[in-house]
Design a protein around this nucleic acid. Structure first.
Lengths: 228, 228
DNA sequence: ACCTGAACACCGTTCAAGT
DNA sequence: ACCTGAACACCGTTCAAGT
């Protein structure tokens, strides 16, 4: 790594260190090694080898840096399923990758919920791809946004759940006071397969996909052919 | 024996100020007026008219106070539907009140996700009531916990969504780059009814209820009639 | 046993001063 | 134009000293 860090890098034009891209990249590096607890403006500045105050010439606040990270991560969400194949499969692929991306970034979820899409191009691109897939599957236009929001709510909540300790439902000394719940926890834990959070996510995803793909009418329908 | 005023004295027993109940109550008062941004150990101590350091004789950390609040709020969630009537209605009542309670307390959601039920008696009582309702509806025991977790994930995510500004989906100058999404946003916004978040919540809740109440046809052996 | 006040080790952010 | 270093107004938490 060359000592002279800013000026003339092998004939290339002058490169600035503190760009949005560099800051975002450095932030992700800090978070990757130290987590969000270790992500401070000071640690970020240290990674970039500048004084903390220098960051404020390029980002208006730590919150803005978090928004940059958020939009960056959104590009990693897999929307390829929405261009071909059944809607159900596309939603499953999208939802799983969406959750996987944000499981490691749960502190961003409160940021996402407030994020204005107008300033987040990659987030917007994701929504466009998802909407296109819903239209392609024949969805009525006015129903698409509520459905996307509902799916996202489930995905964000599931990301939180995925980082919870495995034993949060162990009732310990209070088992006698919650016999049915304790028994249900034991029954769920004894099943094979991976983590409890994954099973819950898959169960909920399946319920949502089925619930949304059912013909809508007021009564709970009898079992019926859902889609060709 | 000198005036032992600590316990069991006739007349007016000495009342301690800094009990778990008092601290929780004061914390809720501070949050009610100043929000979570204004909720600090200092402001909490001010409300109780003690020095901040005094709190640490009764709570090990701010995080513990947050856990107390969380368990306190859980008692407000309506589980009455699970004792009588159809499972679908009980879930709807429960989910709506659960979301309503935590919409004003979204900063607690990361706390809840990690909360050990063994130290949260009211949280445990809620789970016991919900589990009893699922059993009453004929649910297979091993499926109950994943379904509850999935519903909770949706509820927590929806609580975040409910506090988002209404215009987060306005595409502004980027409308041309996301024509289908922008059009869908406009179509959803033009509908009657309350807020977009409420419509999304109801749509997702309905999908989940339907999806979970459908007979499962795929991998699992046949299931008995769940509800009459 | 429980409270006070000072202190500690941090935060994010601002700003005059430099180049 | 952009960085530095000091400073500001906070945090949560600890602890010796008091009663």
């Amino acid at each position: 790594m060359p000592a002279a860090r800013t000026k003339r890098t092998a004939g290339r034009p002058h490169q600035r260190v503190l760009t949005r891209e560099n800051i975002t990249e450095a932030a992700l590096a800090v978070i990757g090694t130290s987590g969000y607890g270790g992500f401070t403006m000071s640690s970020l500045a240290g990674k970039l080898q500048v004084a903390p105050s220098a960051l404020y010439n390029h980002a208006s606040s730590k919150q803005e840096v978090l928004r940059w990270i958020q939009d960056d991560l959104m590009a990693k969400v897999d929307v390829t399923g929405f261009t071909a194949g059944p809607w159900e499969d596309a939603v499953r692929t999208w939802a799983r990758s969406y959750r996987d991306v944000f499981v490691r970034h749960t502190p961003l979820i409160p940021v996402i919920a407030v994020l204005q899409v107008s300033g987040a191009p990659r987030t917007l691109a994701m929504y466009e791809a998802v909407t296109a897939g819903f239209l392609r599957a024949g969805w009525q236009e006015a129903r698409i946004i509520p459905a996307i929001i509902a799916l996202e709510s489930f995905i964000f909540g599931s990301a939180f759940d995925a980082v919870a300790p495995e034993d949060i439902f162990e009732t310990g000394p209070l088992t006698d006071e919650s016999p049915r719940f304790s028994s249900a926890v034991a029954a769920a834990a004894s099943r094979v397969g991976g983590q409890g959070a994954d099973e819950a996510f898959e169960a909920g995803l399946e319920a949502l996909v089925r619930g949304f793909s059912m013909p809508r009418q007021k009564q709970v329908p009898r079992q019926e052919e859902q889609h060709s």
